[in-house]
Write a protein that binds this DNA or RNA. Structure first.
Lengths: 160, 160
DNA sequence: TCTGTTCACGTTATACTATAACACAAGATT
DNA sequence: AATCTTGTGTTATAGTATAACGTGAACAGA
């Protein structure tokens, strides 16, 4: 997995292509291990999402998916995204209607997203403490937590 | 403000009409106090949103806004919602693309939403602890929090 | 009171996000 | 090979949200 600290925002300069390659390799293995088929199309979508430092909308992905000719239908992208999300390789940001690759796939983790309003980059804050406190306080209200959506906007250290 | 415990899910039986009336009264005063104009249209949208125990989409609100004749344009609803959200009278749930009235408007509060996947009702968990833990852990990652979106789905005490 | 400005709303059009339904082909299973 | 499941293409449509422009009402200051 990538060499930069995964909880922090990526360095201005780092070999992102290497990150992408690593991620793709990991995805390949993880899918093989799970008996899931990482097809050409799915791989391409993952590559596009992983290649971007900022979350991409489905139609952004669609645009990058091919030469200006031969435009595919949006559902193609959504289908690939569904698969990738199921495999834990991509996350959906509901507050942005956008998608971002997960650079810590495989490690089961609580996830909260930190979204910089300046540079638009997103980091994953994998705080078990946040997850637990939410579950605890919800529980006090008699609520059993199934899934947490935590998306925090603000300003990252590079943009202060 | 309403008589039921605001952090819990509403009772099966409670005089919701009274809640709505109280909310409307409060809104009236709060807007007057702020020099904000709670027009007929905005009041109607608020009444509709407040009258529902489950979050409503903008187009749901639009449908209820008037007699089957004379359909207004969606932007009418969105404009009213923008105003109401700005006044803290309504919240938007990004994970549902839907809107819900705030029954504790006026009290400045951290808000996390508990969304029951069974009955679809939503409660506000006003946990300062959650807010603080998120801010703290984000801060450790060098991130200054501006706004938190916390939407938790699961099952409420009535639906267990 | 007049006048200029801001604000709320109507109207039309359009952008953006996501899924349904059905056909066919590729791969896996027997 | 026959069958079954899964992935993809294709077309159409549903669902969510905003842009742009015009009009009239409300308000502020001269």
């Amino acid at each position: 997995m990538p060499s930069h600290d995964p909880t922090a925002f990526p360095d201005e300069v780092h070999d992102h292509q290497a990150c992408v390659t690593q991620l793709l390799d990991h995805a390949e293995q993880a899918c093989a291990h799970q008996g899931a088929r990482l097809t050409e199309q799915r791989r391409n979508v993952l590559k596009i999402v992983a290649g971007s430092h900022v979350p991409l909308g489905a139609y952004d992905i669609l645009e990058r998916l091919e030469l200006p000719s031969r435009r595919k239908a949006p559902i193609t992208v959504y289908r690939a995204l569904d698969f990738l999300i199921e495999q834990g390789l991509v996350h959906r940001l509901v507050s942005l209607n956008a998608f971002i690759a997960c650079f810590h796939a495989g490690l089961e983790h609580a996830t909260q997203f930190l979204i910089c309003r300046e540079c638009r980059k997103v980091a994953e804050l994998k705080s078990e403490r946040v997850q637990e406190v939410i579950a605890q306080d919800a529980s006090k209200a008699g609520f059993q937590v199934d899934h947490q959506t935590v998306e925090v906007s603000g300003i990252c250290s590079s943009c202060v």
